Measured scan of single mutants.
Amino acid sequence: SDEEKKVRDQAKRLGVNTEQLLKWARRQGDEDLVRIVERLLRS
């Protein structure tokens, strides 16, 4: 999905993997991002 591509691009920009991005999203309190990243991790 578009959202998932955006998440992957953001992880690349930050230089982190998906698990690290999830931690980062939780720290930001970004519920939408957390949900998308969790979906990516499960897929």
Rank of each mutant, 00 (worst) to 15 (best):
K12G: 03
L40F: 12
L40V: 05
E3F: 12
R27G: 14
L14R: 03
Q10W: 15
D2H: 10
A25I: 12
W24Q: 01
W24I: 06
E4Y: 14
L40E: 01
G29W: 08
N17A: 10
V16R: 04
V7L: 08
Q28N: 08
K23I: 12
E31K: 12
V34Q: 02
E3I: 14
L14Q: 03
Q10S: 05
G15T: 04
L22F: 01
S1E: 11
D30P: 05
E31C: 15
V34I: 11
Q10P: 05
V16Q: 03
L40H: 02
L22R: 02
R27H: 12
D32C: 15
D2K: 09
A25F: 09
E4N: 07
K6T: 07
V34R: 02
R27T: 14
L40W: 10
E19A: 09
A11M: 15
D2R: 07
R35I: 06
W24L: 03
L33V: 02
V37W: 01
V7D: 03
R8I: 12
W24E: 02
K23Y: 12
K5V: 07
N17K: 07
R27A: 15
R27L: 15
E31Q: 11
E4P: 06
S1T: 11
D30L: 15
E19Q: 09
E3P: 11
R35Y: 03
E3V: 13
E38D: 02
R26E: 13
V34N: 01
D2P: 09
Q28D: 02
R8W: 14
S1V: 10
S43M: 14
E3R: 13
S43F: 12
K23H: 11
K5E: 08
V16F: 15
E31P: 11
E38N: 03
R39M: 08
D2G: 07
D2Q: 11
K12Q: 07
K12I: 09
R42C: 14
G15R: 11
R42I: 07
K6N: 05
Q20S: 05
R8Q: 08
D2Y: 09
E3M: 14
N17S: 13
R13Y: 08
D2M: 09
V37Y: 01
E31R: 10
E4D: 07
W24D: 02
E4T: 08
R13D: 02
Q28Y: 12
L14A: 05
E19I: 11
L14I: 03
A25T: 02
E19R: 13
K23T: 08
K6H: 08
A11K: 05
R27K: 14
T18Y: 15
R8H: 08
G29T: 05
K12F: 09
R26D: 02
I36V: 05
E3T: 11
L21W: 04
Q20W: 12
D32T: 10
E38H: 02
Q10T: 12
R13F: 09
D32N: 13
L14F: 06
K6G: 04
E19M: 13
L21T: 00
A25W: 05
Q20H: 04
W24K: 02
S43H: 09
E19S: 07
D30A: 11
V37L: 15
W24V: 02
A25C: 10
L21M: 03
G29P: 02
K23V: 13
L40I: 12
L22V: 02
L33E: 00
D30S: 07
K12P: 02
V37F: 05
V16A: 05
D2V: 09
D32R: 13
T18W: 15
Q10R: 08
R35Q: 07
L22M: 03
Q28H: 14
D32V: 12
Q10I: 15
R27P: 01
V16M: 15
V7T: 03
L14W: 09
Q28W: 14
N17L: 12
T18K: 09
Q20A: 11
A11Y: 08
D32G: 06
V37I: 15
V16C: 15
L33F: 05
R13V: 10
R8T: 06
Q10K: 09
L21R: 00
L41T: 02
V37H: 00
Q10V: 14
R39N: 05
R42S: 12
R13N: 03
R39I: 08
I36S: 02
V34H: 01
D9F: 07
Q10A: 14
G29E: 03
T18P: 12
S1Y: 10
V7I: 11
D9P: 03
L41W: 02
L21G: 00
K23C: 11
L22D: 01
V7A: 06
Q10N: 05
R13C: 15
K12R: 09
T18Q: 06
V34T: 02
E3H: 10
G15W: 09
E38A: 02
E31M: 14
R26Q: 14
E19T: 10
N17M: 07
K5H: 06
L41Q: 02
R35V: 05
K23Q: 14
A25R: 00
E31A: 11
L21Y: 01
W24R: 02
G15E: 03
Q20D: 11
A11G: 05
D30Y: 14
Q28S: 09
I36E: 03
V16N: 06
K5Y: 05
V16G: 09
V16T: 04
L33P: 00
D2W: 13
D30C: 14
R13Q: 05
K6Q: 10
S1Q: 10
R39F: 10
K12V: 09
L21Q: 00
K23S: 13
L21H: 00
S43D: 11
G29L: 12
R27M: 15
Q20V: 04
R26M: 14
E19P: 03
D30I: 14
R35T: 05
K23D: 15
R26S: 06
R35G: 03
Q20G: 09
E3Y: 12
K23N: 11
T18F: 15
R39L: 08
V34K: 02
I36G: 01
L14Y: 05
L40D: 00
L41P: 00
N17W: 14
E31H: 10
E31V: 13
S43G: 10
R42T: 09
R13G: 03
